[in-house]
Design a protein around this nucleic acid. Structure first.
Length: 408
DNA sequence: TGGTGTTTAGCAAGGT
DNA sequence: ACCTTGCTAAACACCA
């Protein structure tokens, strides 16, 4: 299963270079101290001696622990009884089960802290996270900065997650940057490198659509959204690697003669967008893509063609564009994030946050659907919990027991 | 001028 | 071996 996942293998040297000290990349469902909700699932991305991915994945109710094998270091960073885990409440019972016996000191003594502990390292690298009160104890336990731990997600995954987490399902490039950096401190370094890759991914992959800004929302850069048909890119909600690359259906029809998946002489400008939007008028920019381009840029939605939506926005993005996406998402419901795969975004984000935003989005969605004359229940892009702003989504803040939103 | 967006190219890794 | 996916670098154009 995980063998199908490319685990940043080319960066193995990077990993091993960091393995001098404990390291554990973990994503958890909910780390807030006030609730046990959402702890039924969790994913761990850690390097643990003597652990194999297969051995981990079998017995765990969470179905996985992502483990780097062959790494010889201790779990010192997950020191049992660490004060960093103060306030971590119940509801994390499922976590310890996923750990192998050699992690028993942790799991037995404090099951609720297993996968969290090492993530506390991240508080050391950012003033923002360093403010966490749970960080105040045993500082020397957290020596290794998590900026070194590259998330197991591909850039496409990260973009997809960010977009899906967005209330409006659209983000500007800068917001994407911010979301990724907020969630993964690894990406606070070498920005030129990965941001270039992000831009490349956005432009290159059919699954991402560029949504121009509306005239009343001037600013730099367009919005980026997920293609409404791209819902199956990450089967079972696993964001590690796409099962299959999404390509525009119309392009696919023309790409029979394409030599490789990356480019072809047959991507005509009028494909793809023409029937996905009720008003298929591509912007000027999108019709200029060369014939050999792998991804014709006609997929851009023109904001002027979409009726404004009198829906209260929980995000700062243009409402009419939001409505467009919701509309299209409604036509092509996405289900891929309804799964609870360990590497799904559901596990990356606080489930409580998701629930909260789910409610918000549901309300918004219903209003929107009313406006547009739709009446179907929420099954599309808004069906997943979403976040208002990237700053709200900081995974680590959730880890650090920061009271999140509705702590009722 | 810097950010954004597009395109090309090379490479690595995994799957068939 | 070949194909596909993903990452990275780089060049270039456009625009606020």
């Amino acid at each position: 299963m995980l063998s199908a996942v490319k685990m940043e293998g080319h960066e193995h040297s990077d990993w091993s270079a960091y393995y001098g000290e404990p390291e554990c990349y973990t994503s958890v469902g909910n780390m807030t101290q006030h609730t046990g909700l959402g702890m039924n699932s969790m994913s761990t991305y850690m390097s643990i001696p003597g652990m194999t991915s297969t051995s981990n994945m079998t017995s765990s109710p969470m179905n996985m622990s992502y483990v780097n094998t062959g790494v010889n270091h201790s779990m010192a960073g997950m020191s049992p009884g660490s004060g960093a885990m103060h306030g971590m409440g119940a509801g994390m019972a499922g976590m310890s089960v996923a750990l192998t016996p050699n992690m028993s000191p942790i799991s037995t003594q404090s099951p609720s802290m297993n996968a969290l502990t090492s993530y506390s390292n991240m508080s050391a690298m950012s003033p923002m996270y360093g403010q966490s009160n749970i960080r105040s104890r045993e500082p020397k336990t957290y020596r290794r900065s998590y900026t070194h731990a590259k998330p197991p997600y591909s850039y496409i995954s990260l973009i997809t997650m960010a977009l899906q987490q967005s209330t409006t399902k659209m983000l500007t490039l800068n917001e994407l940057y911010q979301w990724i950096q907020d969630l993964f401190p690894f990406y606070r370094q070498n920005q030129q490198r990965w941001q270039n890759s992000i831009r490349h991914s956005l432009s290159f992959n059919d699954c991402f659509l560029k949504v121009p800004r509306s005239p009343d929302k001037p600013g730099k850069g367009s919005f980026w959204a997920l293609h409404p048909d791209s819902g199956n890119m990450f089967e079972n909600g696993c964001y590690l690697r796409r099962q299959k690359r999404f390509r525009c259906e119309k392009d696919l029809g023309r790409e029979t003669g394409r030599k490789t998946s990356e480019g072809g002489p047959n991507s005509s400008p009028e494909s793809c967008n023409s029937n996905e939007s009720p008003h298929p008028t591509p912007s000027v920019k999108d019709v200029k893509r060369p014939v050999s381009d792998p991804k014709p840029r006609q997929q851009v939605m023109s904001p002027a063609e979409h009726a404004p939506t009198p829906v209260p926005q929980t995000h700062h993005l243009p409402s009419q564009q939001h409505s467009v996406l919701v509309h299209e998402a409604h036509l092509k419901p996405e289900h891929h994030y309804s799964f609870n795969h360990p590497f799904s975004i559901n596990n990356l984000m606080s489930s409580e946050q998701q629930q909260h935003h789910h409610k918000m989005d549901l309300k918004t969605y219903e209003q929107m659907m009313q406006y547009h004359g739709y009446s179907s229940p929420m099954t599309g892009a808004l069906s997943m919990g979403s976040m208002s702003t990237p700053t709200d989504t900081s995974y680590y803040q959730g880890v650090y027991s920061r009271p999140i939103m509705n702590s009722s």
